[in-house]
Design a protein around this nucleic acid. Sequence first.
DNA 1: GGGAGCATGTAACGGGTTACATGATTGG
DNA 2: CCAATCATGTAACCCGTTACATGCTCCC
Lengths: 188, 188
Amino acid sequence: MSEGAMNMPDLPSTSWAVLGILSFESDLSGYDVKRWADQSLAFFYWAPSQSQIYTELRRLERLELATSRVEQTHVAKSRRVYRITAQGQAAIRAWADELEPDPMVLKNSHILRVWAAHNGDMGRLCDELRAYRDAAIEKAAAASAHARGAGRDSAWRFSGIALEWSERFYRDEATRIDWLVDRLRSER
Amino acid sequence: MSEGAMNMPDLPSTSWAVLGILSFESDLSGYDVKRWADQSLAFFYWAPSQSQIYTELRRLERLELATSRVEQTHVAKSRRVYRITAQGQAAIRAWADELEPDPMVLKNSHILRVWAAHNGDMGRLCDELRAYRDAAIEKAAAASAHARGAGRDSAWRFSGIALEWSERFYRDEATRIDWLVDRLRSER
DNA sequence: GGGAGCATGTAACGGGTTACATGATTGG
DNA sequence: CCAATCATGTAACCCGTTACATGCTCCC
């Protein structure tokens, strides 16, 4: 049993994402991790439930990729905060450099509606698409705002670049939906 | 208990997708549905496992949204083929016109790698991104080919439009990755 | 004869969700 | 005082996957 093999346990992708968050900052509570995920990961990867995060955190601790301690603030209720271990750092390095990325997953139910448009009303579908377009533009703006928050230096700059990518993604999506609505109109 | 409520049972999204496939064509076997899904749905929505399809088909039959019969071809082994019922047609119409589309799901693990790039090697990451870009271009070409196969008329034309959308999606993705690689280089 | 494609199905597993439960602190 | 936010956790459920199992037909 080599040490190399120990560096990269077989984990669900969600675990890697949580470990990734811990690689940015120490002493995060489950609650913190959730907020983090919602404000960056959610744009391009993942929008996990609260309960799942706590499960993952416990898993990482069991595998000794993270440790936790209970933080007693002056006042308030205690909270359990997590920190990546040296082993965890080695694991995430191995993940980044040695593990094949999972294939991209896209589940766009709006396009599914277009695909099955012979079953429904076209006007209604186009309205729905326009609403989706507007939501995409808002998401682009939100991603952009978070990207600016990430700052130019330190580890965070890559997370900022991922958010810039997200902004472009949602802007492009909005443009594509505009094209799609036109395309559907021309078909009518 | 109104009949209206009966028209749209609460189904997992996968069921709706399978029912959607049955709304295009009659007498499809599980095997047929799988091939269909891989050649159109997979581009914008879903790449299901074979076993799941059979499960969904049985579910649809249990709910009387589809019927099946065993087809005895002249030769060969028998196969069970499915057909949408009137109830199923009403259900999918209600789905198209009354049910809110699920939010779009995106899980792009390549961008996750960028986000966590401080943990790994930059050169390797860029290589990976370029490979991903090439795969996206191939996907665009495949979508385009299937779109041309869909034809101009009948119900299929909407499925063709969804595939045209997919072509654009993957082309845009490739362009975005080019931008991303440049952006990462400028950061180095 | 053997491999590729057609065709269907079961069993085990687990990842992730929703719903529920609890309770403390802070600010209006 | 009440609502919002912080904070953590359990239980039930099920969707969907992988792996396994089977067997036919067609064509080289």
